[in-house]
Structures are given as C-alpha cells and as structure tokens.
Design a protein around this nucleic acid. Sequence first.
RNA 1: GAUCCUAUCGUCUAGUAGGUUAGGACACAAGACUUUCAAUCUUGUAACACGGGUUCGAAUCCCGUUAGGAUCGCCA
Length: 491
Amino acid sequence: MNDKIRVRFAPSPTGELHLGNVRTAIFNWLFAKKNDGVFVLRIEDTDRNRYVETAVETITNSLQWMGLNWDEGPDIGGEFGPYNQSERLNLYNSIAEKLLLTNMAYKCYCTTERLQQLRETQTKNKQQIGYDGYCRNTSSNQKTNLENSKFVLRFRVPQSGITSLTDSIHGTKTFPNKLIDDFILIKTDGYPTYHFANVIDDHYMKISHVLRADEWLSSTPKHLLIYESLEWKPPIYIHLPIILGSDKSRLSKRHGATSIMEYKAEGFLPDAMLNALSLLGWALDDKTTIISREELTKKFELDKISKSPSMFDIEKLKWINSQYIRTTDNQNLNSILYSFLENNYKEKSKDYPFTLKYLSQITPLIKERINTLNEADDWINFFFHDCRKYTIEELIPKNMTLENTILLLKQSILTLQNTTPFNAELINNNLRTQAVSLDISIRQLLGSLRMAITAQKVAPPLFETIEILNKTRTIKLIEKAIDFLENPVNK
RNA sequence: GAUCCUAUCGUCUAGUAGGUUAGGACACAAGACUUUCAAUCUUGUAACACGGGUUCGAAUCCCGUUAGGAUCGCCA
C-alpha cells in the first residue's frame, strides 16, 4: 500500500510566476515537507497559442530563488515522467480512445462560429451558458460524412444525478450534473484541455493531494466526473483562497508588481517572501508573524488555512523583509547586498572602488535603515562617488550665518586633522568638544557637516561615515563645501 | 443571468466543542531616546456586515438579507 503524500505544482508556461502561483507552490511544498512527502513540478504546456519560450526557465528560476526545490520535474525526471504535458500526448489519446469506445465521450464537429453564436443567444436570452449538446446525439452515420472536418472530443456528462465534492477546507458540496455542460477533452489540435490532462496526470503521477487556487472549485465536478468514468480514485482536494489586490479584485497587473521576480529585483529576500506569503491565508497561532523556513516546514497544517480570500499588503511585506534584513548577520548581509548592487555599482562608483571589503564597513550602518535591498542605494551612494548637489541654504545650519558656517567648516577640518587615531569614537569626542568651544549645538555642527560630506539631509550615522571615508576624503569634501560657500557664482 | 465560494480593526489574522475587558502583527497617532533618518521602548485609535431566531448567555449554532469574489473558453 502506497500512502505516501505526493503533491504537485503545475504551472502553465505562459509567462512569469505571480504571487498567487507562488503562494500555491509554497503551500504544496510546505505540505510535502511537513509530511515527508514528494513535491512534483509539472509543466502544463497544452496551450500552444499562449506558450512562451522562456517561461519554463523563468518558472524554475523563480522556484529555485524561493528555495522551493522539487523532487520530480521536467529537468530532473522521476518515476512518473515525463513531466511536460506536451510529451504525454500518447497517454491522453489512449485514454480518450477508451472513453470514446465506452461512449463516455463523443466527437463534436461544431464550429467556433456556431459556438460563439450559441453563447450570444444564451446570454441574450439569459439562459444558462454552455454547450447545448448538438453533436451529442448525432448518429454515427451522419458523422462519417463529416469525418474529414475537424472535431473535438467532448465528455458526455450525465444528464441527471449529482456530483459531490469533498474539499478539506470547504467541506462537502454537491453539484447537479444537469448544470454541467459537455466539456471538451481533446482540442482540434490534438492537445488535451486542462480538465482532461490534469486528471490523467494526477492519477498516473499518483498525486494524493491537490492544493490549488479556489478558482478551480467550480470546475472540480468536471474532474470528478472523469475520475468516475475511468473508475479512478480522485485525490483529496484542498482549494486555497485567492489572493486579492488592494481593491479587492483578483491580483493582476493593475496592482503593480505581481511577478515574483519583480520582488527579487526590488530587493526582497526569498525567506521574507516565503514568510509573508505563507501567512496569507494561513496562520500558525494568534501571535506569530515572523516564522522561519524551518519552523514553517515543521508546523504547517492544512486545517489552519483560511476560507476567505486575502488581500496582499505590500507594507507588511516590507516590514517582514526589514526584519529579515536586520536579523541577517553582517557578513552574510554584506555579500547579499554586494551581489545585489554589483552590476549597478561596478560602473557607477567612479570615485571609489566598489569592493566587498569596503561595502562591509558600510553595511552595518544601513542595516537598520532599509526595508528592501534597493533602498540601500540612497544611503550609500556618496561613499562611491562625490556629488555636490547641495545649495548654500542647505549648508547653513539653523540660526547661523554664512560666515559662521564657513568658520565652522574650517574649524572642523582642523579638528579632524588632529584626530588620531581616526576612529568614530574619537571623532565623536573631538567634534563635540569643538561644538562647545564654538558655542553651537552638536545638532547645528553635524547638520552642516553632514550636508558637506554626504550631500544629503538624511544619511547614515556621521561619525562612522567619516571614519569609513577616511581623513583625506572627508577633509577634501569639506574643503569643496567651503569653496562652494565662498565662491558660489563660479559653480 | 446561472452555479459556487466567502464575510472579526484600514490590512493580515487568533477565536474550532456558546461565557474573552474580542488577542496579536502591519499601518496610523502620541510620547521617550537621539546626530539626521531609522531602530528600540511606552501608550493610544480601531473590528465581530445586517436582521431574525435557538439559549440564562451567540463573533461562535440555524434561517434570511446584503456585500464582495470565483466559475460558466478548442486558457490554464
């Protein structure tokens, strides 16, 4: 008896993986990990029109980035392959043949024009929309005349009775069969539809639990009908609540970034994404908001999945991400940050080389100030290239004059020159002493210096910044500011 | 239009055998700290969609209403 838990994530290669897909993948993955099961990746590429060449790679990259490793899949194979549906056409066809023989399916020669018109009339007359069974009872004699024209294979849905569906989180629901139309199994191009392929694959791949989005709930009776006709045992269904955008409609492009790779590009950490997405429609208890990958795989429970759809909140994601940034140790964070900024900074940093070592001094200063990796840029910019973009007003502290400011800056150069060793602590002490002797507040002093050195109102802690820049560079920057104040017209 | 799903602070949620000052987190506001910005700490505002029942007692059980969402493709 084989009761091993086997789940699958089955995206179609039509583009990027969006947040909803990823959440589905996460729940499948967690469920497999928690129960020592198998996580299968299956590519549902039965739509030749929407097929995107690069999509499979994008999908696998996204999954890998998120750390959702699969045990069986198109690239690594497995006992129940192949894992691309396009490579399983023979299987689908043989089953289709079987259904045709037992009269559970029939060929339909209706043109798309007829079907479209049918739908229009149904809509206009406010009738139930769906295939009207035109070819359902056409005799085989008539059909032979049509043998040359294109046909689809339709499932012959029982016209009476009910199909009942038991879902782990929604309970048992019943659907009258007469409301289900004769849906298509095989398209004119010979490829199966989702309804058909997914049932066959789930069966042959021995999938025990199907965790998929709520939007499939209404078509599940169709799938159940196929299982029944083939005398197969259906898997256990778990329909996951849908993720909504900020306007409560289904998450889509309108809501900004939806693809997982966009989040990667914005500097979100994979573990933070995992944490945040896991908590969308699932909760461990009444207080946990930060939960590690490991803990998640230990404590994930199906019965804690909520029934209602949830809105995706970018603010909470940012907060969770900031928590992960802060708890990553400095060295680790530094290399993450380095590779994140590398491409951009290699050429951008004209005045000072962008190296792992140099960055490692800076990283601790911004660690608690950024929510996402890409926010780092605003903070550390000036470390790598000098830019004087301040105005005279910005250099002059509150309640001070131009002359006093120039004096203050000149005095600061002297102070810094005499600071040895040149470390933050001593710089701190000496500048404070200087402020007292000039009879100004440390606030005033640092305000002006900060602008002169970093060209920003808001910057990392100044004493550490000065130490990292080193004495020569700092003094040069202050000299520039003085020069600017003394000869503004030339600039 | 038909079928199905759902309903606790603005948002994510706890509440699973009816009895809680309805808890936590994000966000927001105020204060403390402070070298700018953060971080941190304290405090605060804020919810059971509505209407009927059942019950001594309902966020919790039942019925109805409303609202939102999904599905109804030779897309998945």
